[in-house]
Design a protein around this nucleic acid. Sequence first.
DNA 1: ATATTTTTTTTGACTTGCCTAAAAATTTAT
DNA 2: ATAAATTTTTAGGCAAGTCAAAAAAAATAT
Lengths: 221, 221
Amino acid sequence: MLSITEENYLKSIYKIAESDGIPVSTNSVAARMQTTAASVTDMIKRLSDKELLEYEKYHGVQLTEQGSRVATQLIRKHRLWEVFLTDQLGFRWDEVHDIAEELEHIQSPQLIERLDRFLGHPRFDPHGDPIPDANGHWEHRQQVLLSELLPGQAGIVTGVNDHSPAFLQYLQQLGLTLGARISLQETVAYDQSLQVVIEYGAPQNLSDKVARNLYVHPSAE
Amino acid sequence: MLSITEENYLKSIYKIAESDGIPVSTNSVAARMQTTAASVTDMIKRLSDKELLEYEKYHGVQLTEQGSRVATQLIRKHRLWEVFLTDQLGFRWDEVHDIAEELEHIQSPQLIERLDRFLGHPRFDPHGDPIPDANGHWEHRQQVLLSELLPGQAGIVTGVNDHSPAFLQYLQQLGLTLGARISLQETVAYDQSLQVVIEYGAPQNLSDKVARNLYVHPSAE
DNA sequence: ATATTTTTTTTGACTTGCCTAAAAATTTAT
DNA sequence: ATAAATTTTTAGGCAAGTCAAAAAAAATAT
Ligand SMILES: [Mn+2]
Ligand SMILES: [Mn+2]
Ligand SMILES: [Mn+2]
Ligand SMILES: [Mn+2]
């Protein structure tokens, strides 16, 4: 059985590999885990001994099949609990991450399968992220960053790139929650900001920072 | 913030004090926690430093106000999660203890208050044990052990003294779940076993061991 | 090609939580 | 009251996980 710490390392390495590619560097893990490179080297050796990752000194790590499976199951648990927290307990989407960060470590395959059934086998979490099934597979949704839309195009909000409470709260305030419709009128050359219409409201301006952190499913316009 | 281990010690000490009285001995804690007396002495010192209990060398410990509060809130969380697992996820009463043993350590007062509301503010857990409220108070129910009933008396099952899966499964099989009616016909002097009628069925014999581990609310006959 | 900077590993040390074995204190029996 | 048994503490040590500082390797700049 793995410790909570070991599980968190595996999940971090998995996510870094997903976004930055492999191999995963010691420093990138240290940054994400808010710890030191020395601690990471230490843990990497232990996880390597347990055959959860492959480690070549000075050249980073790569999860093994087994390590990947642990990571995706953690992600499955994390996202299912997030659905529970929002849909059943009424938490807002910006409040659930930290709690799910703890709940994901509860050890009971039975619990998670029953929770999944209870929730109606949701395929996406409250932030639009896909929920892996018991075999580690998930649905890939066609989506692009808002910043990639062309003027005149519209889209349905499907997810976020930045999961910080600050960003999520701001989106909520703008009405840019999952499923909301947004259409792009024009881009402002000066600062890459966008002129958009949210749910047929009054036109307004969104920064490029917002646009680069919001996923939409392009729809007809 | 307390570690999971520290929390488990506090809960154990609280429960021992509840059943055996104070002060709580080092050995009794070691037995309940399945560890050694040396480890307990070690932890006791740490908890004493944190003012969660009062410790007099060689004379056992006693929880402080603060230590008691931590313990009752853990019990509250444990029992609320047990209700969730049985009522919402469909677990049997003999399956929930170990999972709740982990869930009780999730750190989020908001979570537990929302869970409580979601469950409809239950006052008893699936084993008939009372659930402390946010202030650490709970309802005291009038109940006696089945072994204390007199021949001719009847009662409604309200709880168990032994929480082991084996006992709970056996009770289930007998139909002796919470709310079931049981009437005592006579006691057998030879082995203290009881001749009983469960829910108006055929008379049958129950060992004194069962009788000493089942709580009933005496009712008219 | 060499020097400089950055990244990674090693070393030594600390805390938490655990253990066994030995010593000390307390309780029980005689 | 003393001896024996039991309980508790102390001592010394181990594994996990952490850190700061020093050393080594790799990457980058000149
Ligand atoms: Mn986590
Ligand atoms: Mn999420
Ligand atoms: Mn516990
Ligand atoms: Mn219970």
